[in-house]
Simulated scan of single mutants.
Amino acid sequence: MEQFYLAALQMVPGIGSSRIKAMVDYFGGARQAWLADRGDLFLSKCLDNNVCNNLLAQRDKIDIHKLAESFLKKRISLCTLAEDTYPDLLRNTFNPPYILYYRGTLPADNKLIAIVGSRQATAYGKNAAGMLSSALAEAGIGIISGAARGIDTAAHQGALEHGYTIAVLGSGVDVAYPPENAKLLASIAENGAVISEYTPGTLAHPAHFPARNRIISGLSQGVIVVEAAEKSGALITADFALEAGRDVFAVPGGIFAIFSKGTNRLIKQGAKLVDSAKDVLEEYGWETALSAQMAPPELSAEEQAVYSTLNYTDPIGIEEIVIKSNVLPAKAAYILLQLSLRGLTVEHSAGRYTCAAREGIK
């Protein structure tokens, strides 16, 4: 029950990681700290008068046993800084969270890479993120991201094809944000981990995301920035990575592209340019079972006619595909569906398509 007393302490307004640690050290445990009377709390000098009042008020509202039952029902686990299961890389950063809440399984080793980028990602960016994450996951590397729209979502989806991924949230682990990623987060909890330093039930808030970004970089050996404008959260993550002594990688983009301004600037400043998973794997000497060159897809004549109209960066609609391929509309739609099921194409908004990037296939 000690972990649930820690969770209860964190639910008190004004008590954060540093105060929890101070209270646990002073009283010898979270339970003793939670049950301490006003006099002992005053003597501990861990809390000011207002926060002490908050604790006493919360103690009357929170039933520890019911709190534990609710966590167990939602399959939410806790890990503290003092436990061996706490991720080593994160432990050795400045101001690591004292408590991590998670659904799923914490990483078994430190072979972890973060992939982050713009929420308003282009087809090129999402394709690049999906390709890199899928190839790295296939090589046994865990992929970390923030479950946001755009690049984060593409990174998680790519990783789930072959391996392990971690979503770090700016809300409680039982709160799906953005809402449309609820199914994705459920899949991540089954095949990886959904992590947060915020107590379950905490809603997403803009102030939470910069703090969330320090955990993303802290958990990883290095951070790959796929797309980022000149001012973006992805660049904040890159800054945290540099402060923690982590490596920063960047995927180059067009010189006129708004969401490549930040990544191209990172490359100018010394970030390693990345256009394949091999670039990252070689950096760390990580062995990989990936072949140097994958076999191109075997396609029928009509499939090849449709597939050859597509590219990796600019989605095109069914009408243009029909004109360029000289394939009947119904047949073209059927072929696109089959190619998508085989992982060869990606459908974007308004029924527009690109090729799906895969490591080793150009």
Rank of each mutant, 00 (worst) to 15 (best):
H65N: 05
F259K: 01
I20C: 15
A8Q: 06
A229L: 02
Q3E: 08
P329H: 12
L6H: 06
M23R: 10
E283F: 13
A30Y: 15
E2N: 11
V12H: 00
G125Q: 11
L72A: 13
Y164K: 02
S220G: 09
C79R: 06
A228S: 00
P252L: 05
I195L: 06
S18A: 11
S134I: 05
N50Q: 12
R31W: 04
P297R: 11
T165R: 05
I113K: 00
Y284F: 02
I258A: 01
R149N: 08
G262M: 03
N50C: 14
Q304F: 14
P107M: 07
K74A: 08
I321C: 00
N50L: 12
L341C: 05
I195Q: 07
R342F: 08
A271T: 00
A182P: 00
G192W: 12
K278F: 12
Y26C: 10
A128N: 03
N264M: 05
L132D: 11
R212Y: 13
E190P: 09
Y124V: 00
Y353V: 09
A229D: 00
P296A: 03
N49S: 04
A82W: 13
P200Q: 01
L273F: 00
G142P: 11
S133L: 03
G233H: 08
I318S: 06
Q32W: 07
V223Y: 04
A193V: 05
I195D: 06
N110R: 03
A22S: 03
G360M: 04
E298L: 13
Y177P: 14
L328D: 02
L41N: 11
A154L: 07
I323P: 02
L72F: 10
L203Y: 09
L203P: 13
E283C: 14
T199Y: 04
S70F: 01
L266M: 11
S300F: 06
T165S: 12
P96T: 14
L56D: 13
E83A: 15
T288H: 00
F4A: 06
F27N: 05
Y307G: 12
V274S: 11
G343Q: 04
L242Q: 01
I151W: 04
G254D: 14
M23H: 07
A295I: 09
S17G: 14
L344N: 04
S196N: 01
I64R: 08
Y5C: 07
R91V: 05
L9R: 12
E2S: 12
E282F: 06
I76W: 06
A7T: 14
P297Q: 15
A82R: 15
S18W: 07
R31A: 14
A207H: 13
A139V: 00
D88F: 13
C52D: 09
L55G: 11
L112C: 00
I188T: 08
I166A: 05
R19D: 04
T313H: 10
G163I: 03
S276P: 01
L41H: 13
M11R: 15
R212S: 12
